[in-house]
Simulated assay, not measured.
Amino acid sequence: MQEFDHIQSLWQSHSVEVKISSEEMLVQAKKEVNGVRTRSLLNILGMLLSFTAIAALLVFFPFNSWTTLAGLGVIIVSIAVYTIILYLDYRIIARNDFTEHPNAFLSNLKIYQLNKFNLYNRLYWIYAIALSFGFILYFYEMLDNMEVWIQISIVAFTIFWMFLCATILRKAYMKREKERIDLLIEKFERISEQFKEQ
């Protein structure tokens, strides 16, 4: 047993330093940065599609109640504001070329990470409350024309979906995004250190 402990202590004390050139690390970082940028663009595109679909609903369908129009208006404004925030965050990481200015990109990446944290913690709840309020106003006229069991089903599904998005899906997305950005920040810090050594 003492031999095993001795071997284990030798193994733990032995550290292998893996040196990756800054060029190789930049190639890896480029793939990850492009992935972050692509996901950000896809989020913006999804929000724009939602905005367009709801605006089309507002324009092309006649509604009798002012509550329906107000509800759709609240939803459209919420989506527009959230889309603008997503676009401003996207511009932070798309602003400069990280291969030419890794230190500037690193500081922008840290700002982007902080903005994402604020977006999915504080601002998300404002967005969710505004959407919920908009749906309540929208459903006021829509549900009045339906049978009771359909009304209950739609309201229950909407509450379930909002709860699912606000808890499980949001937290899973935040965790994945934080891990990706943390890894990217770590790589750019190592790249910056390697440039200092050269």
Score class of each variant (00 low, 15 high):
residue 85 I to P: 01
residue 85 I to M: 13
residue 87 Y to M: 05
residue 87 Y to L: 07
residue 87 Y to H: 04
residue 88 L to H: 13
residue 90 Y to L: 05
residue 90 Y to R: 05
residue 91 R to T: 00
residue 91 R to K: 13
residue 91 R to I: 00
residue 92 I to D: 03
residue 92 I to S: 00
residue 92 I to N: 02
residue 93 I to T: 01
residue 93 I to A: 00
residue 94 A to M: 01
residue 95 R to G: 04
residue 95 R to I: 03
residue 95 R to S: 08
residue 96 N to Q: 14
residue 97 D to V: 02
residue 98 F to P: 00
residue 98 F to V: 07
residue 99 T to D: 04
residue 99 T to A: 05
residue 100 E to S: 07
residue 101 H to K: 11
residue 102 P to S: 09
residue 103 N to Y: 11
residue 103 N to I: 05
residue 104 A to N: 05
residue 105 F to C: 04
residue 105 F to R: 00
residue 105 F to Q: 00
residue 106 L to F: 02
residue 106 L to V: 03
residue 107 S to W: 01
residue 107 S to N: 14
residue 107 S to E: 11
residue 109 L to Q: 07
residue 109 L to F: 12
residue 113 Q to T: 00
residue 113 Q to C: 00
residue 114 L to D: 07
residue 114 L to M: 12
residue 114 L to S: 15
residue 115 N to E: 14
residue 116 K to V: 03
residue 117 F to C: 11
residue 117 F to L: 12
residue 117 F to P: 10
residue 118 N to W: 13
residue 119 L to I: 10
residue 119 L to W: 07
residue 119 L to V: 09
residue 119 L to G: 11
residue 120 Y to C: 12
residue 121 N to M: 07
residue 122 R to V: 14
residue 123 L to Q: 07
residue 124 Y to R: 04
residue 125 W to R: 10
residue 126 I to H: 15
residue 126 I to W: 13
residue 129 I to C: 09
residue 129 I to S: 07
residue 130 A to H: 13
residue 131 L to E: 02
residue 131 L to N: 06
residue 131 L to A: 02
residue 133 F to D: 07
residue 135 F to I: 08
residue 135 F to R: 01
residue 136 I to P: 05
residue 136 I to K: 09
residue 137 L to T: 02
residue 141 E to N: 11
residue 143 L to G: 14
residue 143 L to H: 01
residue 143 L to E: 01
residue 143 L to Q: 03
residue 146 M to T: 10
residue 148 V to F: 10
residue 149 W to H: 09
residue 149 W to A: 10
residue 150 I to K: 09
residue 151 Q to K: 15
residue 152 I to G: 06
residue 153 S to M: 10
residue 154 I to N: 12
residue 154 I to R: 08
residue 156 A to K: 10
residue 156 A to N: 10
residue 157 F to G: 09
residue 159 I to A: 15
residue 160 F to D: 03
residue 160 F to Y: 09
residue 160 F to L: 08
residue 160 F to V: 06
residue 161 W to F: 12
residue 162 M to H: 03
residue 163 F to N: 06
residue 163 F to L: 09
residue 165 C to D: 12
residue 165 C to H: 10
residue 166 A to M: 13
residue 167 T to S: 15
residue 168 I to V: 10
residue 168 I to M: 13
residue 170 R to V: 12
residue 171 K to D: 09
residue 171 K to S: 12
residue 172 A to V: 11
residue 173 Y to Q: 08
residue 173 Y to H: 14
residue 174 M to V: 06
residue 175 K to L: 13
residue 175 K to I: 11
residue 176 R to E: 11
residue 177 E to S: 15
residue 178 K to H: 07
residue 178 K to R: 15
residue 179 E to T: 15
residue 180 R to D: 09
residue 181 I to Q: 01
residue 181 I to F: 04
residue 184 L to W: 05
residue 184 L to Q: 05
residue 185 I to S: 03
residue 186 E to Q: 11
residue 186 E to Y: 14
residue 186 E to S: 13
residue 189 E to Q: 13
residue 189 E to K: 04
residue 189 E to R: 11
residue 190 R to C: 08
residue 190 R to H: 13
residue 191 I to Q: 00
residue 191 I to K: 02
residue 192 S to T: 11
residue 193 E to V: 09
residue 194 Q to P: 03
